[in-house]
Write a protein that binds this DNA or RNA. Structure first.
Lengths: 203, 203, 203, 203
DNA sequence: AATGAATGAGGATTCATTCAT
DNA sequence: TATGAATGAATCCTCATTCAT
């Protein structure tokens, strides 16, 4: 059996190659249509057996894909968020960078959206809930700090997440220009900060 | 046979029965997992051939299902929306009734969400775009009337739609009490009206 | 039950309509692909039940189609053959008219070829054997009359039939001009008369 | 695995086994009735999935079958044709060996005829046209060499091919004795050589 | 560590036919 | 006489997974 120690996002050799092919495939044909056969073909593998050898099942592969994509997207967003000062600015950075990552990693974003859509009607909702949970905690902190208005942080977290995903989905459909991307990102951030009753949230 | 002319939502006999079974099946197992075999079983049909007899293909059946569900949901929402006076109140009614319909027609909503999720990664996006388009027009009108603030109506329409769907999805996952449903609905309406800069939007 | 007395080629009402639609359908999509559904559609019928009602089964329908087509083709050929004087001239007329009927009744010929092709690998070979048998008798008569050379009439009949069908098939594939049709017909007749050692067979 | 590069007729392992089973099946029940299920059964396979694994689709399998059968038949004919001296003798050898191969490889011939019949009413006519084209070229050469009379080589090639197939079909229907096979072959060659105006074509 | 052949269930769809009305 | 709904077997094909090598 393969070594599992310490491996999280950064896969080794074949695994990484398969995950990369899976990301591309899912981005192209969608989560449900992404069969082992298609992924193997894109990876230049001669059989699907290879995939089953490295992954327990489709579930396992998808989890690995999700981890990889989330890591990529998170890395992009983190530096923008950490550069922001104050809760409101952080929220703005969160929203805007989440939109702008479409321009930087279109395939990854597309794949993630497709996986999330599948998850919504599926059993495993770990990626989904973890993401919303983290945002909710952040919002709660902001409220405690008095930088946000009064709202139910669970509802707000879901609303923000849903709004972002809807916009991202729309932007993914037809390739948007950088300008329109930036515009949409700012618009969305503006309206969500208003919703959150953020103090001093001028962009 | 009963009249087939003018048939839109209200299907005749067997067709209606199949659509109803499809709604239930999609609500239970999701759009992608809803095979003809499962639907036929739920409808008490002896073979899948019957479905193919009444519907051109899966696409055709899903369209019929979408029409049926949209009709049901729309009927529920319409009376609440039409009872509202003023743009802001209408928007609030739109949002709240869209959430509350989960309590009234849980299976229909679940099915619709699953179909929409599939549409997002699919070709036919008619249901999706029509829904967002209608809301966008409504928002634009509200801005002209001076009852909403300044925002890009396209982005706002997507944001509202996405926020609603995210909350509905969450509420669908585990059966919520009426109280929590009402609470969530009001919370979401509050925050979205803030986002829209609605004047005089106290619930 | 429907009256069956005296009916041979000339069908009555519905039957004739269905046969006509079947001829067209077989000509267009081929014998094997010509399903009841397609024939019903072309006939403007709302269900296939109608066909099953008028015909015992597919076999029965195809037999009726064959009779109809053979009658049409035979009528075209007969007047040309009967106008010819002498065995050799009759054979020439047989061959040439068999080719030229492609120009006059393309759909019928196409349908007949498709049915014959199916018959070749099927059980019922009545149309096929009857046709060859008649020609064989004719050839045998010609030999007795001393107007043909020495050959096995069974083999010759098969050879002539096969040669005609191969040419007709080729001519059916892409629509031929009248000129090329006439040229091919004369060429084939020439070579087959040579094969039969026909005396005084100048066209 | 054995080399798959350069694979044409001689298939490797399972592929060859499936092709062989397909030949037998097509010979028995005909091209159209030869389903994957029947072929799998004859091949001793547990499911039709195996066939789909080795062949892209039915089309692909049939192409492989055609190649295999054509190779077998061609090999049989080639040595007889190459032993002949002179154009007329070559044509005689072509015709006679084409008939006599029925005795040597009945199943292969039957399968080929069924496939060709299907091709006549189908889209892919590559096997058919290639075969006729090669014969046409041969005839044209013979005419240039002055060993054949005057005729349209395209028509003659079709006539010869059609005559052969008709006779072969007839001989395939009920198992013929070697004697009658030889007789029919000689008869057909005689008459076709007469048709071609071959000089010095005494058998 | 890797391969690719094999599996068998399940996918949608088409088919000729039957039957109650 | 005619209809159209119902049937269920059969079509090809794809799927994730397993297993011997």
């Amino acid at each position: 059996m393969r070594a599992t120690r310490g491996r999280t996002f950064t896969e080794t050799g074949r695994r990484a190659q398969i995950v990369a092919a899976a990301v591309e495939t899912i981005a192209e044909v969608g989560y449900q249509q992404a069969s082992f056969a298609k992924i193997a073909k894109k990876a230049g593998l001669s059989s699907t057996g290879m995939i089953s050898y490295h992954f327990t099942g489709k579930e396992d592969l998808v989890r690995a894909v999700a981890e990889d994509v989330v890591a990529t997207v998170t890395a992009f967003m983190r530096e923008r968020i950490e550069a922001a000062v104050g809760r409101a600015a952080r929220l703005r950075a969160y929203v805007e960078s989440n939109i702008e990552v479409v321009g930087a990693h279109p395939a990854h974003v597309r794949a993630l959206l497709s996986i999330l859509a599948g998850e919504r009607s599926g059993a495993d909702t770990s990626v989904l809930t973890e993401r919303v949970g983290r945002l909710e905690a952040e919002l709660r902190d902001g409220q405690r700090a008095g930088e946000f208005g009064d709202f139910d942080p669970a509802v707000m977290a879901l609303a923000i997440t849903g709004a972002i995903d809807a916009l991202v989905t729309s932007l993914c459909r037809e390739p948007a220009t950088d300008a329109s991307l930036t515009h949409s990102a700012k618009e969305l951030a503006d309206l969500l900060l208003r919703a959150a009753g953020a103090r001093g949230s001028a962009s």
